[in-house]
Simulated scan of single mutants.
Amino acid sequence: MGRVVLVTGVSRRIGGRTAELLSRDPEIDKVIAVDAVPPSHSLGSAQFVRADIRNPMVGKVISQEKVDTVLHLGVILTPRQAGGRTSQKEINVIGTMQLLAACQRADSLKRLVVKSSAAVYGSSPRDPAMFTEELQARRTPTGGFGKDSAEVENYVRGFARRRPDVTVCTLRMANVVGRGFRTQLSDYFTMPVMPVPMGFDGRLQLLHFDDALGALRAATLSSMGGTVNVAADGLLTVRQAAKIAGKPIVPVAPQAGGLVEQITKRIGLRGFEAAQMDFLCYGRGMDTTRMRTELGFEPELTTREAFVDVFASPSRRAQEMAGARRG
């Protein structure tokens, strides 16, 4: 019997594309794609099973199919994707708890890969230049996706202690950007005018969508365990990024995030959320040594190249590409 991989969260773009990619991999015999709603995109030759990870049915699927690898991509980035913050937290945290309970009962399971986020590190003026996997957040996220990710990782660590026979790999991914891939950060950079905190210029470290897929494939096929930072080389500041995107900026007081959010929504500008303010002020950077030396993965695009590919105008993109070739 060969590799049988179960992928959660396949109705969303990263989960669906990952399932499709793995279904074409010669090292994998079967891919089972799981979500509560059918995807609108192709899953390749992956077998779709309609199941909510909060429901015990997912445990039956793992047992009946003798799944040896679970790839958990069912953590939702924004409340908009889940239909509200309450639903988002329930899917992210409660869903993960139920999935881990099913995994704990699965004798066939040998490997668990969980997509987490760099948001667990938070953003504060006391942050190190680059976070290694062993460092803790100087200011723990108190809400939203960052808090969900921290709770998910805590439950995953508990699972790893209870099932030491299962190799657990947690990928802390930088902000993923891709054409047509909507996130809180992409909404911000597509605003016609960007509110930027006065006196600050946060550092951005990104990961292109295609490289995110590559990292998930590498982690699925790898035998490494533990936590690994996944991000592209290099950093951009918020103001540098706005210049590349060709967007005018308007300075705002960092303490006025809630007011700015209300005003922008009132005049029909979607994309700024008060919860972003610390990130826009300070940003974050991650050390990716372990990604290269242990996971054996190297992103194809740098942070700047990823941003240019997604947010720059066609003329600016061509200009940057020409400059890269000359360099």
Results as ranks from 00 to 15, higher is better:
Met1Gly: 13
Arg3Asp: 11
Val7Phe: 00
Thr8His: 08
Ser11Ala: 15
Arg12Ser: 11
Arg13Lys: 14
Gly16Ala: 04
Gly16Ser: 08
Thr18Cys: 09
Asp25Val: 01
Asp25Lys: 04
Asp25Glu: 14
Val31Ala: 02
Val31Met: 05
Ala33Thr: 08
Val34Lys: 05
Ser40Gly: 12
His41Thr: 13
Ser42Trp: 05
Ser45Pro: 00
Ala46Lys: 12
Asp52Pro: 08
Val67Ser: 03
Val67Phe: 07
Asp68Lys: 05
Thr69Gln: 03
His72Asp: 09
Pro79Met: 04
Ala82Ser: 14
Arg85Phe: 03
Thr86Ser: 14
Gln88Cys: 04
Lys89Phe: 09
Lys89Ile: 13
Ile91Ser: 11
Ile91Gln: 12
Asn92Glu: 09
Ile94Leu: 14
Gly95Asn: 11
Thr96Pro: 10
Leu100Asp: 04
Ala102Lys: 06
Gln104Met: 13
Asp107Trp: 06
Lys110Tyr: 00
Arg111Tyr: 07
Lys115Pro: 00
Ser116Glu: 11
Ser116Trp: 08
Gly122Asp: 06
Pro125Met: 11
Asp127Arg: 08
Thr132Leu: 00
Arg138Ile: 01
Thr140Val: 15
Phe145Val: 02
Asp148Tyr: 05
Arg157Phe: 12
Gly158Thr: 01
Phe159Asp: 05
Arg161Glu: 12
Arg162Thr: 14
Val166Gly: 08
Thr170Val: 15
Thr170Glu: 12
Met173Gly: 00
Asn175Ile: 01
Phe181Asp: 13
Gln184Cys: 05
Gln184Pro: 03
Met194Ser: 07
Pro195Lys: 09
Gly199Ile: 02
Asp201Phe: 07
Gly202Leu: 06
Gly202His: 10
Leu204Trp: 13
Phe209Ala: 06
Asp210Tyr: 04
Asp210Thr: 12
Asp210Met: 04
Gly214Ala: 11
Ala215Asn: 10
Arg217Asn: 06
Ala218Asn: 02
Thr220Asn: 09
Ser222Glu: 06
Ala232Asp: 03
Asp233His: 12
Leu235Ile: 14
Val238Thr: 15
Arg239Cys: 04
Gln240Pro: 01
Ala241Tyr: 07
Ile244Ser: 01
Ala245Phe: 10
Gly246Lys: 10
Pro248Gln: 02
Val252Asn: 02
Val252Leu: 02
Ala253Cys: 11
Ala256Leu: 12
Val260Ser: 06
Val260Asp: 03
Gln262Met: 13
Ile267Trp: 09
Gly268Leu: 09
Leu269Arg: 07
Arg270Pro: 01
Gly271Asn: 07
Gly271Thr: 05
Glu273Phe: 11
Glu273Gln: 14
Glu273Ile: 10
Met277Trp: 04
Asp278Ser: 15
Leu280Met: 09
Met291Cys: 11
Met291Glu: 15
Thr293Tyr: 00
Gly296Arg: 09
Phe297Val: 06
Glu300Ile: 09
Glu300Arg: 15
Glu305Cys: 03
Phe307Arg: 04
Val308Asp: 03
Ala312Lys: 12
Ser313Ile: 05
Pro314Ser: 04
Arg316Asp: 06
Ala318Asp: 11
Gln319His: 14
Gln319Arg: 14
Glu320Leu: 01
Arg325Tyr: 06
Arg325Ile: 14
